[in-house]
Design a protein around this nucleic acid. Sequence first.
DNA 1: TGGGGCACTTTACATCCGTTAAATTAGCCG
DNA 2: CGGCTAATTTAACGGATGTAAAGTGCCCCA
Lengths: 214, 214
Amino acid sequence: MPQKISPETRAAILDAAWDLMASQGRLDAGVGEIAAAAGVSRQTLFYAFGNRAGLLVAMARHQDAKSNHVERMRAIVVGESADVATLHAFVDAWLDYLPEVYPVAMQLETNSLSDPDVALAWQDRFLGEGLRFGLERILERMSASGALAPDHHPGRLADLCLALLVPSAWRILVIECGWRVEDFVASRRGLLDALLERPDLTRDKAPRSSPGNA
Amino acid sequence: MPQKISPETRAAILDAAWDLMASQGRLDAGVGEIAAAAGVSRQTLFYAFGNRAGLLVAMARHQDAKSNHVERMRAIVVGESADVATLHAFVDAWLDYLPEVYPVAMQLETNSLSDPDVALAWQDRFLGEGLRFGLERILERMSASGALAPDHHPGRLADLCLALLVPSAWRILVIECGWRVEDFVASRRGLLDALLERPDLTRDKAPRSSPGNA
DNA sequence: TGGGGCACTTTACATCCGTTAAATTAGCCG
DNA sequence: CGGCTAATTTAACGGATGTAAAGTGCCCCA
């Protein structure tokens, strides 16, 4: 049974880790350095988060909980409006949040390739209950209210939208290619609008559960 | 001065590493396990590649050298044709190659966040002399021959195209969301075509080198 | 006042990666 | 046959991560 730690200690580690890794860009900071910055032992950090990757997961969730951008997104998803402006508002909130969470989000994506627990957390954030979930809800409402072309598949459209919004897109355009944030946002917005006009791209070209058929 | 190793030994390590990591999905395989699979010592592997990340870089380059998809891309870039079909052919070659190289390409992308040497190799592959370079060459020829709208910026259009084609897009749609390869390819093709119709998305909305101006 | 429990620290160890140094092996040439 | 060289192996070490166990201090309660 893992040892308990107090909420104060846990918060102190998360804050120190965020400051060191996200604010100062020290993504390479080791467990020893993070613990020292938080004023605790390595052991306490391992008690609180299990391992370095678990700390990253907790950092992302902690930031999600604190961020009013995520609150904006949540409010839109539980609302009932179902037009293109709703989709835009949701995407705008995510794009406002993305630069803030980008450093840890990228590390999370990295670790999710090889760590099953991080993979689950990553999927939860982006797929299951996260970004894609929100996109799909809105697109389903749009479909039901006639704001989406009848042959558009909301689930697959959500998939396509997600692929435009992941941290890697920010990395390519803003970090590596030097794009201004507003140009990045405009490009995501423009591509999303283009997708709304292309139901053919969300049509699944063959049944997926046909046994014996390729 | 690093110790030399024979080309046969180097090839044996690359083949064993590819089989273990890309074919068997053991991206988490350690240096000891990879060396054992190749029938050499850990030390020999370190002599050949420097470290685990250097091995990943060499694996990707080795696959590039062996792949006729990369040869197809290269042939298109050094050619002179300058229409949409040329762009499509180039992108098709890359998308044919992507599933083959994906396991190592993803590891390369993620390791590039924290390893400067891998970052250089990643940038070389995708940006400087790689995928983006090829895209930009073709788009510049298209611009010069009038096959691109006059106010389209070939460099920035290349940036946008690149963001649609990176391994992360494959991961989201094919690996995580279960898309069929041909649907993935159709979505990339459709989004690229949509971009060709949207010169406004490649316009840089403000001068970048204006001192004192936001 | 003393004992128990909780949260945290300290200590020690195993494993892996990467590095350095030395030894070994095999093949070639005079 | 012996010497030399290149390639490879073996050995040892330091740093980092993660794990386990024991120690410490503080607070609370009988």
